[in-house]
Design a protein around this nucleic acid. Structure first.
Length: 436
RNA sequence: CGGGGAGUGGCGCAGCCUGGUAGCGCAUCUGGUUUGGGACCAGAGGGUCGCAAGUUCGAAUCUUGUCUCCCCGACCA
């Protein structure tokens, strides 16, 4: 993409109403614009990051056996009355009346709808287990939205819902998602710690929140220092229920809990290895059994002819929140430092002198070759001075900067810089190979 | 929802106390000089001061109402 044709409205100064660093950087880097309290427009650069995160989430969901669907954001109040949550949810739910005075709502989560859709298509125990998910916008009318996309009212969320015939199956479904979450966050360059958590309005008795440690986080969290070491999940076979259960039990032997689930005995057992921090919740998994299936009268036919009430879990990942969470974890004084997997582009190709024929020709050639090699490159071909281009590139945080200047081109050399890391001079002829 | 703060060109702010018809920096446009870390000179465009009512000869400025946004706390992917 040529920057001269792109839409990247960067800001030199920090807008006054942004407090946390991720919010400031997202505004300055031209990723988002606020349109109302807690509601944001996603500009091209932000949209690309969102898509990268979505794709990683999607791949790990598929790997865990979940099936993608897309549900409406606007749902009928009647559906929510079946579970009793229409009255239970409170003012956080955005309620809407249509032209016929029918009561509707903007979905804050979707247990009811998934349960209904499941019942609609599943009649037999042979249809179990199932795990169905979507990546869709949600709306929760937070009393006080803040911190940009970390606490918006409208947010993009992956929500999955599992249906099983018995508790062992349901626990395995829960564990599958658990390990999928570990893998998902690790792929994004995040160390997310699963913590015992409260279940809130979703209900149920088993739940973990996945927390990214960050000083700007809203949750107070407590954990054993063993969690600071990265966990390798690559060898785990998620299809092997016993092995998976054993692995997760092993993980959870190290204490980690959010404020409302603190276990003072476990904390004193951890002794001086106990750590306290602030954290950002980026995902949560719940097991709640037959709470919805029972309330909504959902059953499937069992092998012996007796109806079975499926047991459910639900599993959320805050996709849009992750954009902010990653920036909180990955930035310096000059701007964002994207982990490779979620970077909006891989390379910032910087032409220092658009009016220098040899320099421009070299940059154009690199752009063409990188593009042909399938490298995502943002080519700064604007008629700007070097300083301005470096500042923009640092701000938007692409992992690599390929700098093409007149002196270097004359000597057959370009500069390759790792954002937040070292810079090296390489032969012009080697540049494409190094980046593809 | 309680407590606090703020709405003035695209962004950041001053002016308000002590009413007299709006200013600065950045950004934008034109011309020129520049060109490896957010250049310089000259010129230009852009704001009914959130909205509404009131006081006054006159309101960005005073009064009242209203909307919006932000911060602290209580609540949440």
């Amino acid at each position: 993409m040529r920057l001269s044709r792109y839409f990247l409205p960067v800001l030199k100064e920090t807008p006054g109403d942004a407090q946390v660093i991720s919010h400031q950087l997202m505004l300055r880097a031209g990723m988002i614009r606020q349109t109302a309290a807690g509601i944001y427009a996603w500009l091209p650069l932000g949209r690309r990051v969102l898509a990268k995160i979505e794709q990683i989430v999607r791949e790990e969901q598929v790997r865990a056996g979940a099936i993608e669907v897309l549900m409406p954001t606007i749902q009928s109040a009647d559906l929510w009355r079946q579970s009793g949550r229409y009255d239970a949810y409170g003012p956080e739910m955005l309620r809407i009346t249509d032209r016929h005075d029918r009561e509707m709502l903007f979905s804050p989560t979707a247990e009811e709808l998934f349960t209904q859709i499941f019942q609609n298509g599943a009649k037999s125990y042979r249809d179990l287990p199932k795990n169905i998910y979507q990546i869709q916008w949600k709306f929760r009318d937070e009393v006080r939205p803040r911190f940009g996309v970390l606490r918006g009212r409208e947010f993009l969320m992956k929500d999955a819902y599992s249906f099983d015939a018995d508790f062992a199956g349901a626990k395995h479904s829960y564990n599958r998602m658990f390990i999928a979450y570990m893998r998902t966050f690790a792929r994004m360059g995040l160390d997310a710690i699963p913590m015992q958590a409260d279940t809130g309005p979703i209900g149920g008795d088993l739940s973990h929140e996945f927390i990214v440690l960050a000083p700007t986080g809203e949750s107070d969290v407590f954990y054993h220092e063993n969690w600071l070491k990265p966990r390798d999940t690559s060898a785990i076979d998620a299809d092997d229920a016993d092995a998976l259960e054993g692995f997760i039990t092993g993980l959870n032997a190290d204490y980690a809990a959010t404020d409302e689930k603190r276990d003072l005995a476990a904390e004193s057992a951890a002794g001086d290895q106990l750590r306290q921090s602030k954290g950002i919740e980026v995902g949560q998994v719940f097991y709640f059994g037959d709470k919805y299936t029972k309330a909504m009268g959902v059953t499937v036919q069992g092998p012996d002819g007796v109806p079975i009430t499926p047991l459910m879990g639900s599993y959320g990942i805050g996709v849009s929140r992750l954009v902010g969470a990653i920036i909180e974890a990955c930035h310096d004084k000059d701007g964002i430092i994207w982990p490779d997997a979620v970077a909006p582009f891989k390379v910032a190709l910087i032409n220092l002198r658009v009016d220098d024929a040899a320099c421009a020709a070299a940059a154009e050639k690199l752009y063409a070759e990188l593009t042909a090699a399938g490298v995502e490159v943002l080519y700064d071909d604007r008629d700007e001075r070097g300083g301005a281009k470096f500042a923009t590139a640092d701000l938007i945080g692409l992992p690599w900067q390929l700098v093409v200047g007149p002196k270097g081109v004359a000597a057959g050399i370009v500069e390759l810089k790792r954002r937040g890391g070292e810079r090296v001079e390489i032969a012009l002829a080697d540049a494409v190979g190094r980046l593809s």
